[in-house]
Design a protein around this nucleic acid. Structure first.
Length: 356
DNA sequence: CCTGGAGGCCTATAGCGGTC
DNA sequence: GACCGCTATAGGCCTCCAGG
């Protein structure tokens, strides 16, 4: 969908005086579409203007399009309820300690990528966990409700309720910040910072870990993706935007990909996308100008969406069930830094279609 | 002052439903 | 089935602003 790649020429734009004239006509028509004759007359008039004469012929369709979109924009503006896009002050305890945030999980600590399945039984958690890489887990702090990297599992115990708890030291923090956390509810496999090419794996409805910047502090909280606006990738990397709702205060915000950490449960989507891109690449070599490559991505995205529905959504992972993916998608150190070179010059990898 | 990042605006077009 | 209107969105470009 959308405008096809330009033919290389400069993009057409109406000039200010033309816009003013069309706005006047639109007002005169009470925001209804003027008659075809009016549009044709306008197009001819614009084409004959000194600025355009002999250079650019304004098509009636272009005038028509302008009216269409302006009418839509006006209507959308007037009917849209004010949407809270900025971060609202979080409802939190006054005494909540202000922590500096360990930078996106992986960025703070080199991540040894474990390919072994980690399945510590609760009863042996204390012993088994000491043998694994702690940076594979994150824990939710009861003090501020935010998620932090687990630096060390120090001890474990059982409550009367039967719920196992572990004493964790958060990565980058000292003993003063140690907390007992419920394994079943507040310990899970670490969320993964998204690279630019991974934005396609973030879909509406997803649970994500989202970087919320408040006045005094900025922390990672659980959030759900309400909508994803796909945008073309360029030298800056991913320009997609995600409307998210934070679970803890229900505030909504539009965030870029760099603030999003996806759950490891979505790894399977990337596997599918990579497989599809491999196919597209080989196809591309056969037919270098095959415009259907974008449809491959659409197909893949749709199949991803289908599988998403079939998948159990990512909730707190029971420690006893944690198992790392047999094959990691990104063996490179996971970092929140967005590669500036990702996808540039390779339009077949761009998220060229909406995923919902 | 220059440069680059990020957000927003604008135009073009695809998709869908309604009407004839 | 053709046509039309509405809506959503891709992609290009502009603007703002922070940092060097």
């Amino acid at each position: 969908m959308g405008r096809p790649p330009s033919n290389g020429g400069p993009a057409f734009r109406f000039m200010a005086n033309e816009v003013m004239e069309m706005e006047g006509i639109l007002q005169d028509h009470h925001n209804t579409m003027p008659a075809r004759e009016v549009l044709v007359a306008l197009a001819e008039k614009f084409s004959e203007s000194p600025e355009r004469k002999g250079k650019i012929v304004v098509q009636m369709k272009q005038v028509w399009n302008w009216f269409q979109n302006r009418r839509y924009a006006i209507r959308a503006k007037s009917s849209k309820a004010p949407v809270k896009l900025n971060v609202t002050p979080m409802a939190r305890e006054e005494s909540a300690p202000v922590r500096s945030v360990p930078q996106p999980v992986a960025a703070s600590i080199p991540t040894p990528v474990s390919t072994t399945t980690v399945a510590p039984s609760v009863s042996t958690a204390g012993r088994v966990i000491t043998e694994i890489s702690y940076t594979e887990f994150e824990a939710k702090s009861a003090r501020d409700g935010a998620w932090y990297d687990v630096g060390t599992f120090l001890s474990h115990r059982h409550l009367d309720t039967g719920d196992p708890e572990v004493l964790v030291r958060f990565a980058g923090f000292g003993p003063d910040e140690d907390e007992w956390v419920n394994i079943r509810k507040h310990v899970r496999q670490r969320s993964l910072p998204c690279e630019a090419s991974e934005c396609v794996a973030v879909l509406p409805g997803d649970l994500i870990l989202c970087f919320q910047e408040g006045k005094d502090q900025a922390l990672y909280f659980d959030a759900h993706v309400l909508d994803a606006q796909r945008r073309r990738h360029d030298i800056r990397g991913c320009r997609c935007r995600f409307l998210v709702r934070y679970d803890h205060d229900l505030s909504e915000e539009i965030v870029p990909l760099r603030k999003v950490c996806r759950r490891p449960e979505t790894d399977y989507r990337l596997q599918q996308l990579h497989a599809a891109n491999d196919m597209a690449t080989s196809d591309h070599q056969k037919t270098s100008t095959d415009p259907s490559t974008t449809s491959i991505q659409r197909i893949t995205a749709e199949s991803v969406q289908r599988q998403q529905n079939a998948h159990v959504t990512a909730g707190p992972v029971s420690h006893a069930k944690i198992s790392l993916p047999a094959q990691k998608m990104t063996p490179e150190p996971k970092t929140a830094e967005i590669s500036n070179t990702v996808n540039v010059g390779n339009p077949t990898l761009l998220p060229s279609s909406t995923l919902n």
